[in-house]
């Protein structure tokens, strides 16, 4: 088992974003590997940004656990292309955390910035705080977003959560913002709280809203009541702007009429 502790050093220009896609468990297996990060237009060594402590040995990514301490709210792309092992982030994390991730676990004890788990394929992300916009979404112009794995957000999510969702599962325990699951194709999006305008242009997949869906789109057909885990919900099929192959379950909904 290898434990890596990365403690963020105090920064001279603390608001400049730092891109650190090299922080994945697999990369720490090679003792000779150099770690470079980018701060603005300057390429720096990992040790310029973090106090790095490494204990133990590991033979595979699964045996590596990385802990990020200190103010990491401006550090982007942590865990990008991660395929195994564990990353624990003790505070907030910057954008694009867990992009393209295919395995392993990322645990964020603070809040996550936008594009959490963008185009994720597998593995698990748990965010104990809130996530900003585009959690589990796709990239600009891309047809498919998240394709597999699980994102669990204990707090609230911003707008466009699960945009172009094409597989896997997103669970939001708080509220979601506007247009969660817009252009959703497959997979499952669960919102325990409220949201507005879920699943516009839905082509497939499933969305469950256990609070109120405000400004519900008129192009979903009410298919009557049903129950999920003893909770009475209304089932809707849609979106009939296309073939109406998706399903939304909502406890309450309001229309903008």
């Amino acid at each position: 088992m290898m434990r890596v502790i990365l403690e963020v050093k105090e920064q001279l220009k603390p608001n400049l974003p730092i891109e650190a896609e090299c922080i994945t468990p697999k990369n720490f297996l090679d003792p000779e590997r150099e770690f470079h990060v980018w701060k603005g237009n300057k390429e720096l060594d990992l040790t310029d940004i973090f106090h790095v402590r490494k204990d133990g040995n590991a033979k595979s990514a699964e045996q590596v656990e990385i802990t990020i301490r200190g103010d990491s709210s401006h550090i982007k792309r942590v865990g990008e292309y991660m395929d195994g092992g564990k990353i624990i982030i003790e505070h907030d994390i910057g954008m694009h955390c867990g992009n393209f991730m295919s395995g392993g676990l990322i645990e964020i004890r603070g809040n996550a910035d936008s594009w959490l788990g963008r185009e994720m394929h597998g593995g698990k992300i748990i965010c104990h705080g809130n996530a900003m916009d585009y959690a589990g979404s796709g990239y600009r112009g891309e047809k498919k977003g998240m394709r597999g794995g699980l994102i669990e957000i204990m707090g609230n999510a911003g707008d466009f959560a699960g945009e172009t969702l094409a597989g896997g599962e997103i669970i939001i325990h708080g509220n979601a913002g506007d247009m969660p699951g817009v252009d959703i194709k497959d997979g499952r999006l669960t919102i325990m709280g409220d949201c507005s305008r879920p699943c516009g242009n839905m082509a497939g997949g499933e969305c469950r809203v256990f609070g109120t869906a405000y400004d519900m789109l008129p192009t979903f057909r009410n298919e009557g009541p049903t129950t999920i885990d003893d909770v009475t919900v209304t089932r809707f099929s849609g979106d009939y702007t296309s073939r109406g192959l998706g399903t939304i379950y909502v406890v309450n909904c309001k229309y903008m009429d």
Partner: peptide, 16 residues
């Protein structure tokens, strides 16, 4: 969305 649904012949489901 409503206009698109009407174009697709799903006008019956659109609310008043």
């Amino acid at each position: 969305s409503s206009l698109r649904a009407i174009l697709r012949g799903k006008g019956d489901m659109i609310p008043d």
